[in-house]
Nucleic acid binder design. Sequence first.
DNA 1: CGAGCTTGGGTTAACGTTTACTCAAAATGC
DNA 2: GCATTTTGAGTAAACGTTAACCCAAGCTCG
Lengths: 336, 336
Amino acid sequence: MADAKVSMQDIASRLGVSVKTVSGALHGGSIRMSEETRQKVKALADELGYKPNLVARGMRQGFLPILGIVADGLITQPFATEIMRSFDNAARADGLSVVVTNIGGRGVEASVAELQRLMPQTIAYASMYHQVVAIPEAVRGVISLMVNCRDEAGIIPSLVPAEQRAAETVVEHLFERGRRRIAFLNLPGLVAGRMREEGVRAAHAARGIALHEPWMLSATRGPVYSDRARSLVRDHITELFSSADRPDTILCGNDRVALEVYGALRRAGMRIPEDVAVASFDNQVEIAARLDPPLTTMELPHRAIGRRAGEILSGHRRPAQLVEEIPFRLVERASV
Amino acid sequence: MADAKVSMQDIASRLGVSVKTVSGALHGGSIRMSEETRQKVKALADELGYKPNLVARGMRQGFLPILGIVADGLITQPFATEIMRSFDNAARADGLSVVVTNIGGRGVEASVAELQRLMPQTIAYASMYHQVVAIPEAVRGVISLMVNCRDEAGIIPSLVPAEQRAAETVVEHLFERGRRRIAFLNLPGLVAGRMREEGVRAAHAARGIALHEPWMLSATRGPVYSDRARSLVRDHITELFSSADRPDTILCGNDRVALEVYGALRRAGMRIPEDVAVASFDNQVEIAARLDPPLTTMELPHRAIGRRAGEILSGHRRPAQLVEEIPFRLVERASV
DNA sequence: CGAGCTTGGGTTAACGTTTACTCAAAATGC
DNA sequence: GCATTTTGAGTAAACGTTAACCCAAGCTCG
């Protein structure tokens, strides 16, 4: 109908009431008012196409319906856009807009300061990968949730993937499939890597199956797996299959490592899964689903993390505990 | 220093001047005022760590320092995050925040309405891939730039990749490398595909080299290349190399098609580039750089588009013309 | 039936900025 | 030296919304 901006004043004068009456009628239940007046106001507001001016309201209340995100590499890395997407959906359902600012080179404090200019309702810190972040004390009070990471001081509520549990699950799954001789090509430089190793050990212990210590290997020289580490993976595979004492399964630190492992195994003449099973973590679908055979992998719960974060930040739920762990999902494909 | 929010009023009363004086002093040059007062105000503002309240200013002026983006699949598709990233950088340099809203299933009007609630300074429409979009008349006036797409009515300034020019460039490059018999596995359902075909034809015409019509092929059945079209690509390759009249180059509609072509050629026993060269469009690095041999491809100018869009939207430059074409870059690798 | 309570709604003042208007003092021109 | 212009800065209103406060009328209850 009408589209030029309609203010409460317009509604009020047409109805011969005061602005406060209009505000009260539209605002909700708490203000006492006759049902008749309320309906009258609402009807006219609808008819005129009234949209509240959020900026004016924001000035009054001291904040805007905005959810600020300090993104640590998030936009940059396409892999983690899942988080953003489900986050965005959850926020929109509550009438909140999401404003993202990348840390870039600036540091957390500058990023938070930039966000605060728009007076967001809440600010969250979201990381592209599972890490432990040192949040400067000055901004600790203003960040209300850590997404896909934890703060070093252990003060801010956090949402992280249940790494250890995921490792236990996949190892358990391998046991069920009759695999007993598992080699782990881990990424030990990362938080996720360390926790997954714990899980692998715990799963073995729980079943009373001995873990072959020399098979706990590193897929990387530095902290992160990169193309430069390719040869290292190949060497590991060569070594593993040169002796008679061979593993029946290669568990990989992530799908990219698995990609390399596939190549190395093929070169070594091993068939997957007949001669050796391969399993992994992350479920980076561009890799995992396209490998031949498709890769069994533990899916990072990015979507669930985003959704949960949205719920918490828009106020529907409180975090279950200070560090809430979100479970992975086992994606069974043909490699086991 | 001081961090509790400092308002102009605070500065004014400490200095014994009026608020308007403070506003004038900080606002810039146009208001007449003694240089002494101005300096005094600025100094105290600095000392107190004054940050203007953007929301209050926004209410007064009717808009916030926000750049609104209606994203058509942009966040979803990691491929195009390049645009967003350089966009974000350009905007931040001007003190603007970027607010993105995904169209999702809602349609343009609803998305624009949502954005407008925050009173952005300007709104742009950004697409994940080069397309022609029908912008409803109601919101035509409010969208000031089309990014990586054009509006059907030809009214809104647009920034698009120079598809035809890119095709000319790569074909020219192939000619220079001595290739004369080029087969094109195009994506004819897309705007980009149609324009690239024009370019391929134009490049042949410019050099007076005959184009072999049966080699202008489609890599897809539907409009977009998907995994389902794999077999079609394989069939084309088989066919092309079954006769004696063979091409010496396969130009692919995009890198994913090239990926499939690599497989089909290998199966057919053809070596790249010795027996046949392969070139492509997009430079999706995860594919193009990792293929063996690495793929020569025309890089989509996503970063340049984002940067240019940021410049235009923050007001530094006007678009050169209604539809501004941003050139691709030839990325030479070993496949030619 | 009157005191006190409830109800419905108006009045007014904020929130922090910007800006149109005003006005006094200083500077300039004759 | 007086009239006029320029300069510097104050006053006040406005942006749209919310909220503390107030008041009048009707109600309940002893």
